[in-house]
Simulated scan of single mutants.
Amino acid sequence: MSVRSIVSIIALAFTAYLAARGFAWSGGRVDQPWVIFLVLPLYLVVTWLWVLWGLRPRSGAAPARAVPGRDRTLPVWAGALAIGVAVVVPNAVFWAVDPDSRTQPFATWTIGGIGALMTIVMVRRRPIVAWVGLAAVAVSTILWIGLLPALSLGLVGSVVWVAAAQLLMAALDRAARDTRQLAELQQAASAWQASQAGRQRERRVQVQRALQAAGPILGRTIETGGNLRAAERLEARLAEGRLRDELRGPRLLDDVVRAELENARRRGITVTMLDEGGLEGIAEPSLVEIRRELAEILQGASSTRLIIRTSPHSDTAVTIVGRSGESDGLSDEDSVELWREIARPAQPSA
């Protein structure tokens, strides 16, 4: 049994007890008993409607997700019924009871009874209805028995109940907001930790590849004191190129691209690869196609220098520039032998 079910049972029992006090006529006189028999069931029906509404979901339906401030709030017509009961029940009871008996418990139960109803209304997220109904019973009681008797016979307690319910609901709403914010912060922290873990794994992979690429030639360099043969110097330059590729453009690399880069360098081509962003939102199948096209371009390149750059442009993913001569500047347009652009794959529409 849920907490809400237990609280609802307690509310049903308590309001039934308050209503039952209206039949304890010993020690007083009721001039119109039929009125009592009409208004007491009316009070119980409306009160229990507010208690039981939405307690059990419809058959076959999943329970609704609780939303702060909108947890199965009753409709407007139910609020009108509650206010109607707050107006009708006290006035009907005080009218039906003999004037000398209006301060007896079987008459003044209406103060606590309507106070309990308005406390339930407040808990069900209708604060305006609750305060209007409480004001209605307060005015009616004061008019029938006077201010001081009304205050001493339950009006103060009813006001305290409703006010405490409003403070409690405000505290619960604040706690729900804080819990939701904490959950969002925890999710953000988890995402950040996952991102950092991914970057650490990527760095470890890059370090391992760097050691695999440069480790042997570095060991040979140390062993010979830098006196490498021509073939070993070529391997050193190739190892340096592989290391730069892994650090500067890892998203453009696969086994085929790595092989074509090494072949180009063995042909005497100086290759510079720069990943300057722009590939973050491209799916892996599209990256595979970009790498395949890059490998084809590298296979047929014959320029002295190749510059491979990723592009953040909306239409271009990668730009490959082939240059001749020794100039490092890009102002000499005559030295540009190759200019190829790999188009950015079209993103699927949302």
Rank of each mutant, 00 (worst) to 15 (best):
A64T: 12
A135L: 02
A92I: 04
L38E: 04
G113P: 09
R72L: 13
L52T: 09
A78Q: 10
L44Q: 00
G115T: 01
D71Y: 03
V88I: 15
G112W: 08
I114T: 08
I114P: 10
L40M: 11
A92M: 07
T47L: 11
V139E: 08
V87W: 15
A86Q: 08
D98F: 05
A61V: 09
T108W: 06
S101I: 02
F37N: 10
I111V: 14
T47H: 15
R58Q: 15
R65I: 14
I128R: 11
V139I: 15
D71W: 02
F106E: 07
G69S: 11
W53M: 05
A66C: 04
P68N: 13
P57Y: 11
P105G: 02
R56T: 15
L52H: 04
W50E: 14
I36M: 10
V139A: 15
L44M: 02
L117I: 01
L74D: 01
W109P: 00
L52Y: 01
G115D: 02
W95L: 12
T47S: 15
S59H: 12
V85D: 05
V129A: 12
R58L: 13
V121G: 12
L117W: 00
M122C: 04
V35P: 08
R56D: 11
F106A: 06
R126D: 11
P99T: 07
P63E: 13
T103G: 13
I114Y: 08
V85A: 07
T73Y: 01
I114E: 11
W34R: 10
W34L: 14
A116L: 11
L44K: 00
T103N: 13
G79I: 01
V51N: 02
V137M: 08
V67C: 06
L55I: 03
W95E: 09
A82N: 03
I83R: 05
F94Q: 07
P99H: 09
F37H: 15
W77Y: 15
R65F: 03
P90M: 00
V129E: 06
V35S: 10
V45T: 13
V76I: 15
I111A: 06
A138D: 09
M118R: 02
T73F: 00
P105Q: 05
L55W: 01
L52A: 09
I128T: 14
R56F: 15
R65S: 13
A66F: 11
T73Q: 14
Q32N: 15
V137L: 07
Y43Q: 03
L40N: 01
A138V: 05
T47D: 15
L40K: 01
R65C: 05
F37Q: 08
G84Y: 00
L55A: 05
V46T: 06
Q104D: 13
A78E: 05
W131N: 06
P75Y: 06
